[in-house]
Design a protein around this nucleic acid. Sequence first.
DNA 1: GAGTGGTCTAGACCACTCA
DNA 2: GAGTGGTCTAGACCACTCA
Lengths: 243, 243
Amino acid sequence: MNMLSSDDRLPLYQRLRDELAQQIANNRWRAGEAIPTEAALSVEYSLSVGTVRKAIDMLVSERILERQQGRGTFIRRPQFQSSLFRFFRFMTPDGERHVPESRILSKEPLPAPAEVAKALGLLPADPVIRLLRLRLIDSVPVLVEEIWLPREPFKAILDFDLNAEGPLLYPLYEDLCGQVVASADETLTAESVSEVHARLLRVPAGAPVVVIERLARNYAGQPIEWRRSWGHASHFRYSVEIR
Amino acid sequence: MNMLSSDDRLPLYQRLRDELAQQIANNRWRAGEAIPTEAALSVEYSLSVGTVRKAIDMLVSERILERQQGRGTFIRRPQFQSSLFRFFRFMTPDGERHVPESRILSKEPLPAPAEVAKALGLLPADPVIRLLRLRLIDSVPVLVEEIWLPREPFKAILDFDLNAEGPLLYPLYEDLCGQVVASADETLTAESVSEVHARLLRVPAGAPVVVIERLARNYAGQPIEWRRSWGHASHFRYSVEIR
DNA sequence: GAGTGGTCTAGACCACTCA
DNA sequence: GAGTGGTCTAGACCACTCA
């Protein structure tokens, strides 16, 4: 039997949700692992199963947990690749979707510019790492990415040949640096392409490009990566439903 | 006491949700009105209150209903104005948000072009109405809108001076034509401004503009308006959270 | 104070998974 | 067949609204 610590004016299901979220952030379970069964949690916290279910329902709708009937309730492994596809439609002539190839153009340790420091919650000139990266489909450039990482937790990246790996960085962050991306905020804008990006993307000067700023966070909500991506507007399509 | 009609292999809360959604689409209650209490529904359909609550929970999370503790559960009145602000930040110098003014530039009965017919679920050349509209803030144009309506349900609009009214069309659709917009799908893209729009928006030739296509539907899910809006990219900013 | 939705319990039975 | 989440019930009590 266990106690719920948080504010006792809150409903029990809310307090249990907060307690579980805290334990998830503290890595009590790893991504893909099952949390205890509803029955076990109801004994552990002396709550009815209905109340436990309601707490879990909240975490499921927040996409932190995932239920599988007959098997258990699991820590959700975020699927960031699909999010990229929400914004950019990278289609090959045969109409299939591919993860774009990745080519790291540069990798440097730098002092954080003011804007980067602010996004990552650092002080200006704190040590960071900057990656410049090109994404291609069938060797045609579709996206330029500028990626900023706090240097200390990610220093293993400096001694590693990123181009030897697959196109996805987040699995690498996890394997190489123990940093797990759990959520992200993205902001979309559009602008005219800059000279540098026009050359890299092979688009005419002044062409419209879409800009995506992404701040990625770990389970504790701390920023661990800030990236800005530019892609030609013709590759871009985003849909929402409004109620 | 009442019977649930739909597929009896579905859970009861799901069938009640479908039954209530159907009645809402059929205008059993008007926007802003209360549906029967949970206790009344549980008697009417011979279900426990818990099951009724779960059906209502679904409709609340779909933003069709709205709960107010101590008062009742109400048909939600959609707030489309706020959705426009999600995409475009129209800020006056004092930093406040305003509903942009509206100037109807033209209003014509036309046969539906193929693309419009397809979006509205009509046949090509079926009768429609086309509005061209400019949105302004402090008399500065910020958005051009092309609006297509099926002619029959909206014919009252043809004899009405739209510029005599406020900047919002949806309340007008309701008052004048009995057409209620309940939801919408929006698609965002970006492109270089066309010659016509450059003049209307007073932006340089080739400037990047964001394009929003919106298909608006009534409670039964039938398309009742298709519109396309163009705005200068510098007014555009859209944020999402990814889990 | 009557009526509403909100929280919480205890427990029955069902559907699915996996050895 | 043991163990998991999924559905459903009946009912107690609380918090809020409104005349």
